[in-house]
Amino acid sequence: MKKYKITVYDEKTGEKHTIEIEMSEEELEELAKKLAEKHNVKVRIEKV
Rank of each mutant, 00 (worst) to 15 (best):
M1G: 08
M1Y: 07
M1R: 15
K2S: 15
K2F: 14
K3T: 05
K3Q: 04
K3L: 07
Y4E: 00
Y4R: 03
K5V: 14
K5E: 06
K5F: 11
K5H: 08
K5A: 06
I6Y: 01
I6R: 00
I6P: 00
T7C: 07
T7G: 00
T7M: 06
T7H: 09
V8S: 02
V8N: 00
V8E: 03
V8H: 01
V8I: 14
V8D: 00
Y9V: 09
Y9P: 00
Y9D: 02
D10F: 08
E11L: 07
E11Q: 08
E11N: 05
E11A: 05
K12H: 12
T13H: 03
T13N: 04
T13F: 03
G14T: 02
G14L: 04
E15C: 08
E15G: 04
E15L: 13
K16Y: 15
K16D: 05
K16V: 15
K16T: 15
K16Q: 15
K16P: 05
H17P: 00
T18S: 06
T18F: 06
I19E: 03
I19T: 04
E20V: 14
E20P: 00
E20W: 12
I21C: 09
I21A: 07
E22T: 10
E22D: 06
M23P: 00
M23D: 01
M23C: 13
M23G: 08
M23Q: 02
M23A: 13
M23L: 15
S24H: 13
S24N: 10
S24W: 13
S24V: 07
E25Y: 11
E25W: 10
E25N: 06
E25C: 09
E26T: 13
E26A: 11
E27M: 09
E27N: 06
L28H: 03
L28W: 06
L28K: 03
E29C: 14
E29A: 10
E30L: 12
E30W: 08
L31W: 13
L31H: 04
L31S: 01
A32T: 14
A32Q: 10
A32K: 12
K33A: 10
K33T: 09
K33E: 06
K33I: 09
L35A: 02
L35G: 01
L35S: 02
L35R: 00
L35V: 04
A36D: 05
A36C: 12
E37M: 07
E37K: 13
E37S: 11
K38F: 07
H39E: 11
N40H: 14
V41N: 10
V41E: 04
K42P: 04
K42H: 10
R44C: 13
R44Q: 12
R44P: 01
I45A: 02
I45G: 01
I45V: 09
I45S: 01
I45N: 00
E46M: 01
E46K: 05
K47N: 13
K47Y: 06
K47R: 13
K47L: 15
